[in-house]
């Protein structure tokens, strides 16, 4: 941060970490695919696609080692379905599932806290409603802007796994992380997809 060489170092380490991420992802993904193929022999194309995507997602989430909320949410979403549960367990190992089960309540508690907070916020809003309304007429532009931002935040919350339970600050952090992981995932998958047709032909 202080000097250019430090910055460069930072850059290098970031790139290296991105690379490590990709390698780890690929490793885990292939492992997941192997598990998938071992468990089921005949599959339709849609089933196959689903399995591929699921294993890719799980691999991406497991590279995070449960440090981020979105990965935990992704894993817990995946393990909701019964067919996937075995895959999840196998892919992540037992300690992982324990981790998730211990972590999940914390997410829930966050959710609860969040709820309380919003309730309180609404109350405050209600109290001030009279004053606000008068202002609203005057500065409708700002309120429109706020509404737009809010709408988009809602959309983003739906996109990021587990985003419904996050507040705005958390959401931004998780989105950052999620985008980075998605990028790595897409990169690896694209390479894989580009590599594949060569074999089949």
């Amino acid at each position: 941060m202080c000097n250019p060489s430090g910055n460069q170092l930072d850059n290098v380490s970031r790139r290296n970490s991105a690379r490590m991420l990709k390698q780890e992802f690929l490793k885990k993904w292939i492992m997941g695919l192997q598990i998938c193929s071992a468990s089921k022999k005949e599959m339709s194309i849609l089933e196959r696609k689903k399995a591929i995507k699921l294993s890719a997602d799980l691999a991406m989430a497991s590279t995070k080692n449960g440090t981020t909320n979105w990965s935990l949410a992704l894993i817990s979403n995946a393990s909701k379905e019964n067919d996937n549960k075995t895959l999840v367990d196998q892919m992540l190992g037992n300690h992982h599932s324990e981790k998730i089960s211990t972590k999940r309540p914390s997410i829930v508690s966050i959710f609860r806290n969040k709820r309380v907070a919003t309730c309180r916020g609404k109350k405050i809003l209600k109290k001030r409603g009279g004053i606000r309304r008068a202002k609203k007429m005057a500065s409708s532009a700002t309120s429109i802007a706020k509404r737009l931002v809010k709408k988009r935040t809602q959309v983003l919350k739906r996109l990021v796994p587990g985003g419904e339970y996050m507040d705005e600050l958390n959401l931004m952090e998780e989105t950052l992380d999620y985008i980075l992981s998605l990028r790595a995932q897409v990169d690896v998958m694209r390479h894989f997809a580009n590599a594949t047709p060569k074999f089949e032909s």
Binding site: I45, K49, K50, I52, K53, M189, R190, E200
Partner: peptide, 12 residues
């Protein structure tokens, strides 16, 4: 893209 790529992989 992830969706598409997994579809593609499944197809090939």
């Amino acid at each position: 893209q992830v969706e598409f790529l997994s579809m593609k992989l499944a197809a090939v």
